[in-house]
Amino acid sequence: MKLHYGKKLNFQFAVLVLPALAVFTGLLIVPMLLGFYYSLTDWNGMTTGMKFVGLGNYARIFGDKYAGEAWKFTLSFTLWNTVIQNIGAIALAVALDSAIKLKKLFRSIFFVPCLISPVVVGFVWLKIFGNALPALFESFGLKASSAMLFGRGDTVLAGLLIANNWQWIGYWALIYLAALQSIPSDLYEAAKIDGAGKTRTFFGITLPLLAPAVTICVVGITVGSLKVYDLLVSSTSGGPGRASSSIIYYIYDTAISGRQYGYGSALSISLIAALLAVAALQAAALRSREVQM
């Protein structure tokens, strides 16, 4: 029996898709469903027994002040990070796109930190804020403890922002740089002929044409910041106290160290919902401002 051409094609497609579908189902869909199931139980991650608690774990999130504090820190970190990193990266990209000398060298230097593991970055900055800078401050007759940003609840966020931006600004700057270099030079020439100054040119031409890159960078930085964890592990361990405990850090502590896997799963799902909502909102808002060439 001969198969109809369309059916034959569909069969071929199905055969081609099948291996990927099997892997996807086995490694993604099944664990996902199990994860959701665990969020409905009181499983501690160790014993064979677990009790079904329905949506109890989700209800508990609303009364959990530590989860609230973790969210507060995470959102502050994300907000500041997104603003500082984008502005800093654009500024850096514009500088690297200009006629400065040694710009290839600078580009490499700015990019290097993002190749380092955030765990190492955290440890390096712990040493910088804990030892190097205080010694430097002392040598200038300043109070050494003023440099210890990780040591106080009211300065730890600033310290972490410095460490995080030091690592990632160069990476995002390269994305902006690529976008800058794709802007046709005749637009700038036309603007120059029309008498536009540098500021007017930047806000009238450069920034609108950077909008697609802005979308990528803002969403990337936001989602990355919402998931901050490894930087904290080696620098502040979520402290002092819980002052720098991010939501991921709290989830890990709760689910794994605290042996509350069920509740940790519920927290994870709430985080995923938040990540998706933020990404969707940002993408929708930013795409409407993108300029097509």
């Binding site: 996902m32 199990l34 665990y38």
Partner: peptide
């Protein structure tokens, strides 16, 4: 969105699996 959800949810469930008797 659904695909993204699947990938994210699977991450948290990666440590799952039946408890060993």
């Amino acid at each position: 969105v659904g695909f993204s959800l699947l990938i994210c949810l699977s991450t948290l469930a990666a440590c799952g699996g039946g408890a060993q008797p």
